[in-house]
Structure formats: structure tokens, C-alpha cells
Amino acid sequence: MIDKKLILDAYNWRHACKEFDSTKKITQKDLEFLLNTISLSPSSFGLQPYEVFVIANQDILKELHPHMWGAQKQLFTASQIVMFATKKDVTIDDEYFEHILVDVQDTPSEMLEFRRSLIDTHQHKELRINEDERYLSDWAAKQAYIALGNLMTAAALIEIDSCPVEGFVKESVTEILKRHNILNANLDVAVFCCLGYRLNPPARPKTRKSINELVHFIN
């Protein structure tokens, strides 16, 4: 049986680590475990419309640093820097879409047209991607954030600290990553996550709204 208290303890222990102990490194085994939690995370129709980059190149991190105001201490002290980049055009007309349905999900041939139609209808009627291309990007980013949440929770369960980073100048970061051939024209930077071991304990206890204020039961 999984101990529920241990899970809640991990949630309480986790915080957005602002500075890591640069002398402590995540083992390859633990890193592989964390990357597997990303891979196994749910996404809309299982399309996983994102790619994940573990950036260890110090020269690239130095270039990124002035443009990542939300990670000034974390960038050089974290053990690993993980970046989620979303795919810009995951529709039924895209090669990636066909790759996922056929090569990854092994969709039976008699089901292919049904799945294409189902996803196409969802994207055009519910997401309304024909009205604004940003709707498709927003949808892809939501899928990446599901994986990000699972990554941070899994890290906390094995007492690895994390800090999600949205505070960066997107245009500058994108230009640097494209110049280094990390991003191509069909990838868009979504969010970073720094991983490692805290240098200091949190300055104060975790604060959250009460369950009564947060949750509403509709009977």
C-alpha cells in the first residue's frame, strides 16, 4: 500500500527552490526515473505535443542567463536544467501527428480515420484553432504543464528539489536556442524546470488557501 501521508509530506516538503547546492548532483538513475515520469504523463489524445531538452552546456547557459530573470541563482547551481518546448502544428495534416498515431500508438488501420476525425473536430470546434493560431500553442503548452507537474511531484517524492521557471525573455531565449540548433522552426519554448538539491531550507512554511476556500462541492 502507498502511504498517503508520505505523499502529502512530499507535497509539503516541495518548494520553488531559489538556490541549489551546486556540489550535489542528481544520479543518472534518478534522472532517468524523472524523465520516465515525463514520458508517462498524460496528454490530450496521447499526442505529447512537446519535446524535452536537458541543457547541460555551460556556454549556452551563460548566454541564456541574462535573459532568464526567474532563474538567476538556479541556472548555475541546479544539477539539471530541463526545458519543455511545444510543437506548433500538431494537426491531422502534420507528419508528427501521423507518426504518433501510426508508429507510437500503433492505431489499428480501421480506427485511423475515426481518430483523425475525432481530433480534428476537437481542435476546430472546441479549441477553435482556425480562429487564432495561438489556440493550438496554448493547447500544446497545457499538455507540457501536465508533464511538468508530474516531474516536480516525482522529484519531491525522492527528495529532489525543483523550481519551474516561466520568467524569461522569450524572444531572446528563442534566438539563442535557434542559433545553437536546439530549437527548429516548429518548436516553441514553453517552460523550464531546474532540478537539484536545496542549499538552504525554505525561508518560511508553505502557505496555501484552506480546502474550504479552495474546493467547492456541487451536489
Results as ranks from 00 to 15, higher is better:
L6E: 10
I7S: 01
H15I: 01
T23F: 01
I26K: 03
I26G: 03
T27G: 06
Q28S: 14
K29P: 00
D30A: 06
L31V: 04
L31C: 02
S39L: 15
S39T: 13
S41A: 13
F45E: 04
I55R: 03
Q74Y: 06
L75Q: 01
Q80F: 05
V82F: 05
T86W: 00
K88Y: 01
V90C: 15
V90D: 08
T91V: 09
D93P: 00
Y96L: 06
F97H: 01
H99W: 11
L101E: 00
D103M: 06
S109H: 11
E110N: 13
L112K: 09
E113L: 14
F114P: 00
S117M: 13
I119K: 01
T121I: 08
T121A: 10
H124G: 07
N130T: 12
Y135K: 14
Y135V: 01
S137F: 11
D138S: 12
A140I: 06
A141Q: 07
Q143P: 10
A144M: 07
Y145M: 07
I160L: 08
D161R: 03
D161G: 12
V165S: 02
V165M: 14
G167V: 10
G167T: 08
G167D: 10
V169E: 15
V169I: 13
E171I: 08
L177V: 05
V189S: 05
V189H: 02
A190T: 09
N200F: 12
P205G: 09
T207R: 13
T207G: 03
S210F: 07
N212V: 03
E213M: 04
